[in-house]
Structures are given as structure tokens and as C-alpha cells.
Amino acid sequence: MTTSTYRGVPAPEWIGDNWDTVSAGAWRDGVDAALALAALGGTPAPEEPTVEEPEPDLWRNLADALNALVGTGLFPAFHDLYGTVNGWRRQPYASAPARADSPWVVFDLGTREFTVSTRGRVLSGEHSPGRKRRR
């Protein structure tokens, strides 16, 4: 059995020979003819390659850590520190607002890493790079 193609989609010969009859039954408004041919027995388009998630174990570890916090009653809240204390740079941090004494996890702008700290140290600007003074 030979095949013909329409817009790169292979179609069986019987579809090519009877296109007027077949297309009238399969055609719907807004449906591309290539999709109609594929639905009527043509070869489906090749599958797109699957994109693997980078470092899925890291995301699972993060989810496990967050679930452990929730399990102990420390419901983490995520914030963005922004103001004069850090030179008007965005600085993400996480805390447990239900407990005032709980540690904060803050993105240290000097080391470019997340670190565990206290509310007072974060709000004093300890994890923000020094601001240049004008003379």
C-alpha cells in the first residue's frame, strides 16, 4: 500500500483517492487537514522529546523539608525583604509566623546562599552586603 502525504503527514492511499468524501466527513471548523489525516489513519506526528526536570531530587528534598516543618506545626511562610536595610534589593526569606522565636531562612546577599538566621539579625541587615558611603 502506497501512501501520499499532506503537509508532511503520511496518509493511506485510500484517503488520497477519496479525499472529497473522506474530508467532508472528517473536517470540522478550525481543524487542520493534517490533524484530520492523522486521525483518519495517517501516521501520527513524531513525539516531542521529553524534557527532564533538572535535579528532581533537590525538589523532592525541598518538599520533604517543607512537609517536615508542617508536620511539627511550623507552617512556613515565604516573604521578600525589600527596603533600606538591604539597599532596596529583593531578599527572599522564609519564617514560621506562628512562632516568634523560630529561626528564619534568608538568602544572604553577600554569599549568595540561603542561611539560617534570626529575625533580629535579618532585619538589622547582617545578611546584606555593605552599602557604599558617599563622601
Rank of each mutant, 00 (worst) to 15 (best):
R60M: 14
E113W: 06
A77N: 08
P12H: 02
K132L: 07
V105G: 03
S4D: 08
T5M: 08
E13L: 14
P76M: 13
R135G: 15
V106D: 00
P92C: 06
P92G: 09
G125N: 05
L109V: 04
Y82F: 15
Y6W: 15
R60S: 14
R133Y: 01
S117F: 02
L35R: 04
L69T: 00
R99I: 08
N86L: 07
G83Y: 10
L37G: 02
P56V: 04
P49I: 06
T50L: 12
Y6G: 00
F78Q: 10
K132N: 01
A98M: 12
W14C: 02
A45E: 08
N67Q: 14
D20F: 10
T72F: 11
P103W: 02
G125T: 10
G120H: 07
L66T: 02
D32H: 10
D32Y: 04
G130P: 09
V51A: 12
D32V: 09
E52F: 07
D64Q: 11
A77I: 05
D64I: 09
Q91K: 00
P46E: 13
G8M: 09
P49K: 13
L35S: 06
R60C: 06
V31E: 15
G73M: 11
P44D: 03
G83E: 05
H127L: 14
L69Q: 05
G25W: 04
H127P: 00
V9Q: 13
P12R: 03
E126M: 07
P49R: 11
W104R: 04
I15P: 01
E55P: 00
V85I: 15
P10V: 01
F114E: 04
R60A: 15
E52C: 03
V105W: 09
A11K: 00
T115K: 10
L123G: 03
F78M: 11
T111Q: 07
T115M: 00
G125Y: 01
A34F: 00
A39L: 05
V122R: 00
I15C: 03
R28K: 15
T21N: 09
A34H: 02
V105F: 12
R121S: 10
A98L: 08
R133M: 09
P12Y: 06
D101V: 10
W88S: 03
W27F: 09
A94I: 12
H127K: 06
E52W: 03
L62F: 14
A68W: 04
W59Y: 13
R119A: 13
L40F: 08
S124A: 15
K132V: 11
